[in-house]
Write a protein that binds this DNA or RNA. Structure first.
Lengths: 187, 187, 187, 187
DNA sequence: TATGAATGAGCATTCATTCAT
DNA sequence: GATGAATGAATGCTCATTCAT
């Protein structure tokens, strides 16, 4: 029996169950049972239920923060924008379960403190992709691009086809949208 | 105290609260209290909690069904497709709170019977918009078009601008995506 | 649709359901639903739930009362005792569902006013069968005789064999017990 | 306040109340209140309400199982049969409250899983007492013997006399029945 | 003879959380 | 680094009953 990694195991199981059933419908009893520990053990590692998902959010969104930080140091050329999308799309792979969770538990997100954190990140990304004086429809294009990247992977889960192919198809559609927005605002 | 409209009032308040706090976190006690009736009164009008939202779904999605029915009788020209989008966008207006609810409670939707009903409707719409032999990226374009129409209205709620203008902007973006898909599949 | 017999129909369905599921677990809603009337209709015919079963008890135990009344006018010979058993066994046939109900809902009976009524009847029967100075084991024989007649029919339901044959077999065993008691007390 | 015996105390109080008022009419609130714990504490020790009485059944019927096991190893002589009755009668003493409960809540028993367990035990006992080719009336004698032993103790509670004397009187009547059945089948 | 609408009290069950050990 | 035992608050739901119509 592995030692000292209980905290990690709790996170894994929690994300799995939150994803399957939603945050509200997943009880600490379930998490504890699947791990074969007692509920009280969870409380040794995390102060509250919300604490568990906050910790997940912080751990899993670091790669995305890095994309944003990198983007901020770059000029607003089309090439950079597309590179941001590409990196973002890759960063999303590891965080898929978390995004699936966030996507599917938005009502819950709003009351949890991480809801705000996520919104800020989203706006930061849009700011990198759009130009300062973009028309509304172009801002919507950028939004839609990001949005479909977040949602795409699991919404399209029941569409036939190879996952990696789907990801690049989604990326292609997102690219198109950003290219369009870029051109419109420079026209 | 008004008579005979209790059922309707329950639906109204329920949709409001489900939208604000999510389905799981909204208790029947809350709904009853806001209506100043007892919980048992809710059970006179609806057999279960799930029954309440099923009834909402059925009542509010009728206009969309009509769009789909109409679309099925039409030829698959680009003009028809754009007309479908336009009508669908309009049909969505009245159902906004419901879609907001569904968008934000996807984890819950999966266990509720209306989850399936919704998926079917979505597929029916995509079938009207895409051509039989479309490439994956074009099917994704159609999906994304619909998806952003559903989600757009409330996701963009905190973006400044007139709601009606937003709606037409979203429609414009959706149009572009469908036009693109249409052209690709005929090329 | 028959008229004016709703009261009777309520009694029939109630006894059926009380027998199937027990008194506590049978709700007025169920009775009403099976009759295709509203709960409120039941309250037009009976003041309370308990009232329904009291009325059943009164209607169905009349034949037994008649046996007891007859027995009281007779001398305490063995022949009379056996005739009492025979008549009682026959009287039980029509009341089988009621006895099944009472047998299976004794805990409930104790709180319902008919519990007492039944006990009195039982003692009256034992008094007819035993002699004034019987030994305890002979009183128990009489008790057991009656008891097995009450319980026998449904307890033995899952034993193979013809129902009428079972009834006469039970009666035979009861006869033996009473004969034995009679002889002991005269020995 | 005593520790570590809460489970036992719950069982004791539950059996007492189930016996007094019936299973359905006894609420967990009542049990908890009488024990001066919260309802939730009951759920720490038992998964459901039914679980409480299952545990009681299992704990209290062990002595009877032992009688049956012993009986199976013995030849089917009359002496053995009477010894089985004697041991069974003794085993019943400790289980009196449980049998009282089962006797008085038969309607409930039918839906609870222990209903079946009990039926099997009853059949196993009859098989030990009757001979393979017994006539129906002899099988009924065996049944009646057992039945009156189960029911006798509490049904006769309001009959005057010493409890231990009652028990042996009942046993005597049961003996007679089994002797009779034994002789008939060997005649 | 009924019904439609509602109530008040209650029930079994679940949950996040606490704390002494 | 964990457990055993418990709590307080809540939840969805059901029930017998009432009463104006």
């Amino acid at each position: 029996m592995a030692r000292g990694n209980t905290r990690q195991r709790i996170q894994d199981v929690a994300l799995e169950l939150f994803g399957e059933q939603g945050y509200e419908k997943t009880s600490l009893r379930e998490i504890a049972e699947r791990l074969e520990v007692t509920k009280a053990a969870l409380y040794y590692h995390f102060k509250t239920k919300e604490d568990i998902i906050i910790s997940l959010f912080q751990d899993l969104t670091r790669p995305m923060d890095e994309v944003i930080e990198w983007g901020r140091t770059q000029p607003k050329t089309l090439d950079v924008k597309l590179e941001i999308l590409r990196r973002y799309s890759e960063a999303l792979i590891g965080a898929e379960p978390l995004f699936r969770f966030m996507q599917e538990n938005q009502a819950t997100m709003r009351e949890l403190s991480i809801g705000e954190m996520f919104k800020e990140r989203m706006h930061a990304m849009v700011d990198l992709l759009k130009d300062p004086d973009s028309a509304m429809s172009d801002r919507i294009r950028c939004f839609t691009a990001l949005f479909s990247m977040h949602a795409g992977m699991f919404v399209l889960k029941d569409m036939e086809g190879d996952p990696e192919e789907k990801r690049t198809s989604i990326l292609e559609v997102a690219n198109d949208l950003v290219v369009q927005a870029h051109r419109n605002s420079r026209a």
